[in-house]
């Protein structure tokens, strides 16, 4: 969780990631942030984020991203 928060805060320091639940739906992260975020997640966690995983539900909150990473680590 800490490593993920570091990535997010480095990307958008002004966003309160721990409380936000609609990061994509509210436009706090745009598609360009997502490209960077996914690259950093791949690099840091060594998981293969597929194109089909790039849906708002997987990136709306830190918990959703954490769940995605855990799922991909098990795959």
């Amino acid at each position: 969780m800490d490593k993920l928060l570091d990535i997010l805060q480095d990307l958008r320091p002004e966003v309160d990631f721990e409380s936000e639940q609609a990061l994509i739906d509210d436009g706090l992260l745009d598609s360009f942030d997502i490209v960077t975020l996914v690259s950093d997640i791949r690099e840091t966690f060594g998981v293969e984020v597929g194109i089909d995983d790039l849906v708002p539900a997987n990136f709306n909150s830190v918990a959703a991203m954490q769940a995605l990473i855990e799922r991909l680590e098990r795959a």
């Binding site: 490209v35 960077t36 996914v38 690259s39 950093d40 791949r42 690099e43 984020v49 194109i51 790039l54």
Partner: peptide, 14 residues
């Protein structure tokens, strides 16, 4: 997406 997430491009961005 394959191109935007291409590792060399991601490294250059980083």
């Amino acid at each position: 997406y394959p191109l935007a997430l291409w590792p060399p491009l991601a490294r250059a961005g980083r």
